[in-house]
Nucleic acid binder design. Structure first.
Lengths: 200, 200
DNA sequence: GATCAAAGTAAACAGTGATTACAAAGCGCG
DNA sequence: CGCGCTTTGTAATCACTGTTTACTTTGATC
């Protein structure tokens, strides 16, 4: 006897979260840009003005969605390289670096629309992320590991920034429907080899 | 006795171009996203429907604007390294490569909104640009020059793509208001050194 | 000068973001 | 319980948008 929750309730229950999920679905479908608060409200069975109890305006919702993107990206990084874990060998350190690159690129390819939101109009500066997304920490850690096993020189700030922007560039281009590779894996690995060579 | 052209003429003269310029101004002002065809038409002294004689819809205008961005970028590349010219020494080849990188980054910083349009929703795939923008030719040429003077190994496709994406990544991050450097020149030069080291 | 395509107008339609005054739930507390 | 207060939703409304339609003006061409 599960109580049906959808019958004529004044309170939606969790409209804020529902709106964010709705927008994330739109992003997955590639139609985030023409998402309308009214249509969303209609689909969620709520009146047009209701959304404004949770978001100041449409852009505010977008910012929240962008933040979700950064959260998801961080979670993929954590899955690829649990932050508390450590490399045991130089081969291990290389693998971990590669895993990060794969995670970065895979995310941008899996979520091109969300990606553009994150690093576009509502990215970095306007979301709660500071100048560098929190994922920067994983990358940084990975580079330090590589240095420990003498795969590269100890990375200074410039080296870390270089590695970030190089991987970011690959991801950004990969998220474009116009740029596609026969074999992602090969391209990413070659890219990483170049980066490591630059830092050696 | 110059005839005043603005008095009650039925034909605007060159509305299509005027609309593109208007949008480019909006981009420079950072308000491209909320550009409205109606407001633009009003400001250009023309009725709301007039724009539709020249553009199928709003997105069509955006695509044209994005194309203008690629044109402008190409023109900056040409200014930095006239395509017909050639490097004479290895130092020359390095300088030319650096000039390209500077041009790329300067463009993205000067036109962040246009940049996002070009590489975002209306970029690459949807504009008339093919998978790789025409500027790819300059970069490619520059790398070949560097190889001629033994600064790097002869670049294959992977190497060229690496260089592009590395510079693209730097430009993309640079165009974000959240990422700024004390000294652009130093950062760009360091970045280029890393790239050249990777290709050596 | 008549003809005809190109380029503008005017009016309308559906849909949007946002604000307002009001109503209903949920809650804490005596 | 029942009283109040805050949160959350509603209904109505405003100004505005993209886009289409039927109609008019214009400029060029034979």
């Amino acid at each position: 006897m599960v109580e049906t929750k959808t019958l004529s309730r004044h309170h939606h229950g969790n409209l804020k979260e529902a709106l964010v999920e709705y927008a994330l679905d739109a992003a997955r479908a590639g139609v985030l840009n023409d998402l309308s608060l009214r249509q969303a409200s209609r689909d969620l069975g709520v009146s047009p003005g209701a959304a404004y109890r949770h978001f100041k305006d449409r852009n505010s919702l977008m910012r929240h969605v962008a933040q979700r993107g950064f959260d998801e990206l961080a979670s993929r990084f954590e899955a690829a390289i649990p932050f508390a874990s450590q490399a045991q060998t130089s081969g291990d350190a290389r693998d971990r670096f590669l895993s990060l690159a794969h995670a970065y690129v895979a995310f941008s390819k899996d979520n091109p629309t969300l990606w553009r939101l994150m690093f576009g109009r509502f990215g970095l500066s306007s979301s709660s992320e500071t100048a560098r997304p929190s994922t920067y920490e994983w990358l940084s850690k990975s580079l330090v590991e590589l240095a420990v096993f003498d795969v590269i020189r100890p990375p200074d700030g410039a080296a870390q920034f270089f590695a970030w922007s190089a991987i970011h560039g690959l991801s950004d281009l990969s998220s474009s429907p116009a740029v596609s590779f026969v074999d992602d894996k090969t391209v990413i690995e070659a890219h990483c080899e170049f980066i490591l060579a630059a830092l050696s």
